[in-house]
């Protein structure tokens, strides 16, 4: 489903150039649950941004469902982000002025879904993450865990192939983190493909396999035989 070959990413140029990725090659089959670990600056977030089409690699190849992502126009990438990819951020990135329902509706608006359908779908997703009773609250009125659940519901809006999560529990306490990971686990059981960046070994333990990044390269891979 996802196949990357020799991905590199260089920020800046000349003497100030920083190599964030130095040739990453990886296959992620459908239904996989991959955790990425590694110290700060090891390139794991950059890698996730590239997988999420939030930025383009400097060199290398990226195929999503056998389609060459690097050759796509900006509008095609926007469409890909809208329909095929769901992104979950460490800091939730909800729009503070909108209520919870509207936040989940945003990707559906850009996807062109009709008004009624959009509302129904957003409500359904929020019910799934256990926030059916909070539809008209503003993000600031919710706890961190609840906000992240809204963000997950938003990432699922257009029923994407892949969920990309950048330290989704980084701002949460252990209890909220476990609730969030419960949702990821459920999504994995529904055969959704998940790539998740984390610092915490106990979070990485939810994944089917764990990749270790160091200095822009994958240095080690471990399989979790026993799924929790």
């Amino acid at each position: 489903m996802i196949r990357v070959v020799g991905l590199t990413k260089v920020f800046g140029s000349g003497d100030a150039a920083v190599e964030a990725l130095r040739g990453v090659t990886l296959d992620i089959p459908e239904g996989d649950f991959v955790a990425i670990m590694g110290p700060s600056g090891s390139g794991k977030s950059t890698f996730l941004s590239i997988l999420g089409c939030l930025e383009r690699p400097t060199t290398g190849e990226y195929y999503l469902n056998d389609r060459d992502v690097n050759s796509m126009e900006d509008d095609e990438l926007a469409d890909l982000r809208n329909r095929r990819l769901g992104f979950v951020f460490q800091s939730y990135n909800l729009l503070p002025r909108h209520d919870v329902l509207r936040n989940v509706e945003i990707p559906l608006v850009y996807g062109g879904a009709p008004r009624g359908e959009r509302r129904e779908r957003a409500e359904m997703l929020l019910n799934q993450v256990g926030l059916g009773h909070r539809l008209t609250h503003k993000p600031a009125e919710l706890s961190g865990g609840e906000q992240q659940r809204v963000a997950i519901a938003r990432s699922l809006a257009n029923d994407p192939l892949v969920i990309l999560a950048d330290e989704p529990t980084g701002n949460l306490d252990t209890k909220a983190s476990k609730e969030i990971m419960g949702i990821f686990q459920k999504m994995h059981k529904e055969n959704r493909t998940i790539v998740l960046v984390t610092h915490e070994p106990y979070i990485a333990a939810y994944a089917k396999r764990v990749l270790y990044f160091r200095d822009g390269e994958i240095v080690r891979e471990e399989a979790n035989d026993e799924l929790r």
Binding site: G52, L54, D74, D75, A78, D79, R81, N82, R83, F87, N93, L95, I106, P107, Y110, G111, R154, N158
Partner: peptide, 10 residues
């Protein structure tokens, strides 16, 4: 953020 959620430049 809006672009990440699928908004096009247009």
């Amino acid at each position: 953020l809006l672009k990440a959620l699928g908004a096009r430049r247009r």
